[in-house]
Amino acid sequence: MHEMALCEGIIGIVEEEARKHSFSRVKVVFLEIGALSHAAPEAMTFCFEAVAARTVARGARLEIVETPAIAWCVACSTSIEIRHRYGPCPSCGSHQLQVTGGEEMRVKELEVD
């Protein structure tokens, strides 16, 4: 389950920020997870608790904002929201789509004290 590795990545970022901004406890970690990204939000929440134990993020809550999957339809020359990577375009039915959004996995901000 690669969500474990992703959560280790989050903890790495939180620990670097803790050194930079001198905080000792994180209350909330705000994430932005794209609908087409490699992370399942439920699995992230599950793994985060395990990975965060004994770190500055122990007991912190994960707040996940899911961002929509956006693609450029070559046939319509327009940006559309898609449900899956394999489309099709809701207006013309084409599969000639270039994904332009929804793949991001970012730590947006931290609530700390």
Binding site: V107, E109, E111, V112
Partner: peptide, 18 residues
């Protein structure tokens, strides 16, 4: 009084691997 504060991070989770 709360000492809570928000820190803007804006970093990719896979940034280190990348």
């Amino acid at each position: 009084m709360s000492r809570d504060r928000i820190i803007q991070v804006e970093r990719d989770i896979l940034g280190k691997n990348e």
